[in-house]
Simulated scan of single mutants.
Amino acid sequence: MSDHDERRRFQRIEFDATTELRQGLQRWPTKLLDVSLKGLLVERPANWEADLTQDFEAIIHLDPSTRVEMQVELRHEEPSRLGFVCLYIDIDSMTHLHRLVELNVADSTEMMRELRELIE
């Protein structure tokens, strides 16, 4: 287990959903690899040329009428993947994300611990 994995306090769940990164007028469709209450990991888009000093908006389309929108910051960049941490999420998006994670985390005690950590 790497140091990065040991520091991770939020369980990531694999989830396949249409996802888009936005920054200003730039738009990058990408593949969601996993998501947590605190961030997401996506495939690095082929045409990735972003201003790494600026924040991004991540939009995860759960279905045609439901989406999770987050203001995110790039935390790590690899040749094939990008990791983002959530800076801001509205209550509707948090409700959808919470439900998604809840349905995929078997341990309700772990889910409550994550929620407490997120609030703190």
Rank of each mutant, 00 (worst) to 15 (best):
M1L: 08
M1A: 14
S2L: 09
H4Y: 04
H4K: 15
H4L: 09
D5H: 14
R8C: 08
R9I: 06
I13V: 15
D16F: 10
D16E: 13
A17C: 05
T18V: 13
T18I: 08
T19F: 00
E20H: 07
L21A: 01
R22E: 09
R22L: 09
G24C: 08
Q26Y: 03
W28E: 07
P29G: 10
T30D: 01
L32N: 02
L33H: 09
L33V: 11
D34V: 04
V35P: 05
V35I: 15
S36R: 07
S36C: 09
L37F: 08
K38W: 03
K38M: 09
L40E: 03
L40H: 08
V42I: 07
E43R: 00
P45R: 08
N47M: 04
N47C: 04
W48G: 03
A50C: 06
D51Q: 13
D51W: 11
Q54M: 11
Q54I: 01
F56C: 06
F56K: 08
I59A: 08
I60K: 01
H61Q: 14
H61W: 07
L62T: 14
D63F: 10
T66K: 15
T66I: 06
T66A: 05
T66Y: 00
Q71E: 13
H76D: 12
P79E: 12
R81F: 03
R81C: 04
L82N: 02
V85W: 05
C86Q: 13
I91F: 09
S93F: 02
M94W: 03
M94N: 04
H98G: 02
H98V: 06
R99I: 03
L100P: 01
L103H: 13
N104P: 01
A106E: 11
A106R: 08
A106D: 11
D107T: 08
D107S: 10
T109S: 13
E110H: 12
M112I: 14
R113D: 12
E114N: 02
L115V: 14
R116M: 09
L118A: 05
